[in-house]
Design a protein around this nucleic acid. Structure first.
Length: 957
RNA sequence: GCCCGGGUGGUGGAAUGGCAGACACGGUGGACUCAAAAUCCACUGCUCGCAAGAGCGUGGGGGUUCAAAUCCCCCCCCGGGCACCA
């Protein structure tokens, strides 16, 4: 900056001055306080008379140590523009920002820096608050709790207790208070209630709760010292956070019964205004499939083995059965010796391969034991690496197919998972790829019971003898070879055959129609320090007891040694949670109705997702000490549609984690009457990611991006040539760009405008600092059109605008009003620049007319609020423009007097003609013929197509 | 392997059946200036051409239509999700 820069030029210095001033003024005047209609936070409620409530929400951030980078605010700016636009359209807009401050990210940062998580968390929140304030986001500052606030997590604990004290009534398809279950259990003859001891009764009740303790194989991450939910483990068996290996091991843990809600979580997606891709991801995660369970007998024994299949129509083609290695019935099945012959038409001796891969001289019990050991020791990663190679071992036992009494061998194999269905399958190798591969590996018979279409048979050069097939036929076809004395499927299509056989199985009491989901219950405990303590204690029977509401919160004890207990990969010892080290905290004397007794506290903590499951509800009534949210505030803001939040913006990475968990909690709260809508988020919008250039040297090591210079299209760090790529902004790629740098060089309004202008909000885009000057110049030109750079005086014209200016203005208003609600902010910016470019011409010729300047400033306000406020103020308005009416287009100025019509010949543009806007088809054709006359000479015009107002096309032959 | 999303100038992108490339960056030329910066003006998809103009052009190939970036079929490439879920 040199001395001769005009004093009143809109540069970074002036922008910063304006921005700080308006941010202070907004704070002082409570400009963005959104009043509740009554109760707490209802100050100013008289002003919202006649204004509709609108709730605009961002996925709240983790307060990370590094502060914000320029990628973070993309969505926050988007919601702010939307919210400000809605305020100018008369809505009472609630927009606020809290902090998701418990959990692994905050804790890992604390562990790394050796500071207490509360210290680092509070410092990080302070940094982020400062950065967000500097962006000029119009948040209601009273409504931004951190999940770590005791006054907040008190209610997280309260909601957990609501879940704990509920059960799912499958008849009514909703959750109900556990108190309503007791009389039902007592009256149910099957429970044998009268004979049960008190502890037995409690265990029965506990097993029905939505939050329950169970010992099950869980995802154990030794490097993080904690268990993880299925959703937190990546496909290759690693922790989503930190990318550490995860192992399966049995541990007693808290689970939440999200599976009870599977159907409603699936069904209610249809009510929501979400992108189809997110809905599909949730549907896939829930993984609902319909089919049947079928009970198979075991040869020579009493017990039945249930299998789940989605293809009951292929039941006649089952040639063997497979149980998961962990299946509880396996031990009872295994005979002392391998069976003799009689194991199938073609087999008189058991093939060696059936006895497993550990030698043929062992008995079945030993072969099974070795295989189970082999399967259990495989990590998730190894299972992935082995892909589809099928392994397994024969148990020595045979099942009996209920439809044809076929005696089929029972295997165990790790391609059957204990956690899905019944943990057992009937194998139909003719019509299932996996079963086909296994059958080929173990020389098991393959039969065709669904006739493939001729095209398939031709393509595979085979007939209906499945023994000669090269792969299973899994498509639709007509059933064959599927009949017994009572029932025949032959000739039926797949759908009919499924229905027929399912009905028959049901009648015979051999099976029933069944629905299965991939979704598992939510593993809800963590062996970590930085989370909400469970409001649970254990009594002398070691059974869980809820801490009563009036004793909440159960505060997290301040301890110095908060690090998780990291263990070796193979270590099977039960990890001691950090809270076990809190002196004097683990046991507590309470009077829970039976007199003072000593109780042992639950030492695990809740996962990070707990706090983020309901924060949007706390925004509505953040200071309420008696309720998590008052019913009045909840009804006012969440409304009575299917979902409450009018617009929810966040990253796609939460598609199945946060969004599924939050929907689940919301539905529980809905069932219990605490919220009024079945869904939390009506409209969901996923913003894209900003990627910044990163540079690697020849060894592939990242070099600090800020040190790289470009010369002749090549990139250099010092003298060394480096390679450019684009990736996620952050420390790991050494390409950090902070908003503070951009504020300093251009101002917050320029950053806002830049991020909104570079593409559609849902698209990822590269960060390109070079391009920022485009929108910076736009603001400078607009400023110059209104304010004299040398004197600071207004230089606008008070004369009426020209017709041309008016037409452009109203077309712009019209276009902006179309783009704003759909978050098309990039085209809004383009339209405003176009209008301003016009104003620049007009200004040079005698001043930009106030008539155009004022609406221009109002339209800019949602995007660049500080400079808009400043200009609005200089134009003579005393009040903030936050609640000014957004300009409305006058239809009279949307029609032109004349229009230019392109003339096509055979679809190619050959000329243009200007006609009156009201010209009819004949007039346009006449004018067009005159214009392109020579081109039509000597050819036959076969057809003339006139699209009114758009174009004319001559079809010649 | 299955399921989504995407592929348009040197760059970010606009146009969702009707003038491809709005707007911006970058580039070229000019004005202003002692000079530079800033600002303002003009040009800027590719090829041929002095020009007028012509041809080509939205990943590739085919189709529907008076007219296709846009709709349909096949293929290629990039990004994301799921992955032995019976």
């Amino acid at each position: 900056m040199t001395d001769d820069t005009p004093r009143h030029r809109y540069d970074a210095r002036l922008a910063n001055e304006i921005e700080a001033r308006w941010q202070d003024r907004w704070d002082a005047n409570h400009t963005f306080w959104a009043p509740n209609p009554e109760g707490l936070l209802s100050e100013g409620a008289e002003q919202i008379e006649g204004r509709e409530p609108m709730f605009v929400l961002d996925m709240f951030p983790y307060p990370s140590g590094a502060g914000l980078h320029v990628g973070h605010p993309l969505g926050y700016i988007g919601t702010d523009v939307f919210a400000r636009y809605q305020r100018m359209n008369g809505k009472n807009v609630l927009h606020a920002m809290g902090y998701d401050a418990f959990g692994l990210p905050a804790e890992q940062y604390a562990v790394q820096t050796g500071q207490h998580p509360r210290v680092t968390t509070e410092a990080n929140i302070a940094t982020m608050r400062r950065q967000l304030r500097a962006l000029g986001l119009g948040h209601d500052s009273r409504r931004g709790p951190a999940t770590t606030d005791v006054s907040y997590y008190r209610w997280t604990q309260w909601i957990f207790l609501q879940i704990f004290n509920s059960w799912y009534d499958y008849d009514e398809d909703r959750s109900r208070p556990i108190a309503e279950l007791l009389p039902l259990l007592a009256a149910d003859p099957e429970t044998g209630w009268d004979e049960l001891t008190e502890p037995e009764r409690r265990e029965l009740v506990d097993s029905c709760r939505l939050a329950y303790l169970t010992e099950a194989p869980v995802n154990w991450c030794p490097a993080l010292g904690t268990v993880l939910a299925n959703e937190e483990v990546t496909a290759d068996g690693r922790s989503e956070r930190g990318n550490f290996p995860v192992y399966r091991r049995p541990l007693k843990q808290w689970m939440l019964r999200i599976t009870a809600y599977a159907d409603r979580l699936l069904e209610d997606l249809n009510l929501l205004d979400w992108t189809e891709s997110i809905k599909i991801m949730q549907r896939n995660w829930i993984g609902r499939s319909t089919g049947a369970t079928v009970d198979f007998g075991v040869d020579g024994r009493e017990e039945l083995i249930s299998v789940f299949t989605t293809r009951p129509d292929t039941l006649f083609g089952a040639t063997y059965m497979v149980l998961a290695p962990e299946h509880p019935l396996v031990d009872g099945l295994v005979p002392p010796e391998w069976p003799g012959a009689d194991i199938g038409e073609n087999l008189s001796v058991i093939p060696a391969a059936w006895k497993g891969i550990f030698g043929t001289d062992v008995g079945p019990a030993e072969a099974v034991r070795k295989y189970r050991e082999f399967a259990a020791q495989k990590s998730e990663l190894e299972r992935q690496a082995e892909g589809k190679d099928k392994t397994g071992v024969f148990t020595g036992a045979f099942a009996v197919n209920p439809v044809n009494d076929a005696r089929i061998p029972i295997f165990i194999a790790d391609y059957v998972l204990m956690g899905y269905g019944t943990g057992a399958i009937m194998a139909v190798p003719g019509h299932d790829e996996r079963d086909f591969e296994f059958a080929r590996e173990f020389d098991l018979p393959i039969e065709c019971v669904i006739t493939p279409p001729d095209s398939w048979l031709t393509e595979h050069e085979c007939g209906t003898d499945a023994a000669e097939w090269s792969e299973a036929f899994t498509g639709d076809g007509v059933a064959m070879s599927s009949a017994n004395a009572e029932i025949s499927l032959d000739g039926l299509g797949v759908t009919d055959a499924k229905a027929t056989i399912t009905d028959w199985l049901t009648d015979q009491d051999l099976g029933e129609a069944t629905v299965n989901t991939k979704l598992r219950d939510w593993l809800f405990s963590r062996q970590r320090y930085w989370g909400e303590p469970f409001p649970i204690v254990y009594d002398e029977l070691d059974l869980p007891v809820a801490v009563p509401d009036h004793l909440l919160p159960v505060t997290l004890p301040e301890i110095m040694d908060f690090e998780p207990e990291i263990s070796e990969a193979g270590d099977a010892s039960v990890p001691a949670p950090p809270l076990s080290r809190a002196e004097g905290w683990g046991t507590v004397e309470l009077d829970l109705g039976a007199g003072p007794k000593t109780y042992r506290r639950e030492l695990n903590t809740m996962p990070q997702w707990a706090g983020s499951c309901w924060y949007y509800l706390r925004y509505l009534d953040p200071t309420n000490e008696d309720q998590f949210v008052s019913p009045e505030a909840e009804r006012y803001w969440m409304g009575d549609g299917p979902g409450g939040v009018d617009l929810y913006v966040g990253g796609v990475e939460h598609a199945v984690l946060h969004l599924l968990y939050a929907r689940f909690w919301h539905k529980v709260l809905f069932d219990l009457g605490h919220v009024s809508t079945p869904e939390p988020f009506q409209r969901l919008f996923n913003q894209g990611m900003i990627q910044a250039p990163a540079y690697t040297d020849d060894r592939g090591i990242y070099v600090e991006a800020s040190s790289v210079v470009e010369r002749d299209g090549q990139f250099y760090a010092g003298d060394e040539r480096v390679h450019q790529e684009f990736g996620k902004i952050g420390k790991s790629l050494k390409n950090m760009v902070t908003p503070d740098d951009i504020f300093r060089d251009y101002g917050a309004d320029t950053l806002r405008l830049y991020e909104m202008s570079t593409g559609p909000l849902d698209a990822s885009r590269p960060w390109s600092e070079r391009d920022i000057v485009g929108v910076y110049r736009f603001l400078q030109r607009l400023w110059r059109n209104v304010v004299d750079e040398d004197t600071g005086e207004l230089r606008i014209s008070e004369s009426p605008a020209s017709d041309e200016s008016r037409r452009l203005l109203h077309r712009t208003i019209q276009g902006v009003r179309v783009d704003m609600p759909t978050m098309g902010f990039n085209t809004v910016v383009a339209k405003l620049i176009t209008l301003n470019n016009h104003l620049t011409q007009v200004a040079a010729a005698g001043g930009a007319p106030r008539e155009v300047v004022e609406p221009m400033v109002l339209m800019l306000a949602p995007l660049a609020p500080h400079v808009a406020e400043e200009l609005w103020s200089r134009l003579g308005h005393a009040e903030t423009l936050t609640y000014e009416d957004f300009p409305v287009a006058d239809p009279a100025w949307l029609v032109d007097e004349t229009i230019e019509v392109p003339i096509q010949v055979n679809g190619k543009v050959r000329g243009k003609v200007v006609v009156g806007a009201d010209a009819d088809d004949a007039a346009i054709e006449a004018a067009a013929r005159t214009e392109v006359g020579p081109l039509l000479d000597g050819v036959t015009v076969r057809k003339v197509i006139v699209v009114p107002g758009r174009l004319i096309n001559f079809v010649v032959g």
